[in-house]
């Protein structure tokens, strides 16, 4: 007997044996089951509203995901968005007017004695540099490289 025939015989025999099973509800069991089912709760109505709202939910979710993706992209990849000038706009005449008064402030070399540097920066001025240590604060812009050094004078006024 081939394997296929044997398999078929096996299954037919299984069906034959199990089909003799006459198991069924008794009338009392059936009636009780129906009664229990019917009194078990109200049947759920078809969810028409859910069908209507489904596309709305889908679109809303899509918009939300795009928003999150954009936010993530901007934060993670800043080169995706154009760079913005971080300096205030200065009018040409004002810039020219200020040009004469502006003094180039060179970055302080940590190896230079701040007092000596102060003396050099104020060369020609009548006021004498204060003897002793001169407290300074240095601000370096990471974007432009501009460095600003504040010196604290005797009155503890900040002057740049």
């Amino acid at each position: 007997m081939s394997r296929r025939t044997e398999e078929k015989t096996f299954l037919d025999r299984m069906k034959d044996v199990l089909s003799e099973q006459k198991e069924d509800f008794t009338e009392a069991e059936w009636n009780a089951a129906i009664r229990k089912a019917v009194t078990g709760g109200e049947p759920a109505r078809p969810r028409r509203t859910a069908v209507v709202f489904k596309p709305v939910f889908a679109y809303g979710l899509a918009v939300l995901l795009v928003g999150v993706a954009v936010l993530f992209g901007v934060r993670r990849f800043p080169w995706l968005v154009p760079a913005v000038e971080n300096r205030p706009a200065v009018s040409a005449d004002r810039a020219a007017a200020e040009a004469g008064q502006m003094e180039i402030i060179r970055p302080i070399d940590p190896l230079i004695d701040p007092a000596a540097w102060y003396a050099q920066a104020n060369k020609g001025q009548s006021s004498k540099p204060t003897a002793g240590d001169v407290p300074t604060l240095t601000w370096i812009s990471q974007e432009t490289g501009l460095q600003i050094v504040w010196f604290v004078n005797d009155n503890l006024d900040m002057e740049d």
């Binding site: 129906i34 229990k36 089912a37 019917v38 078990g40 049947p43 109505r45 969810r47």
Partner: peptide, 22 residues
């Protein structure tokens, strides 16, 4: 067995009635 079959089929009828809308 019969008892378990009765319980399962009763539960089936109950769920069928409750979720017929689906």
């Amino acid at each position: 067995n019969r008892e378990d079959a009765l319980e399962v089929s009763q539960e089936t009828l109950l769920r069928a009635f409750r979720y017929l809308g689906k």
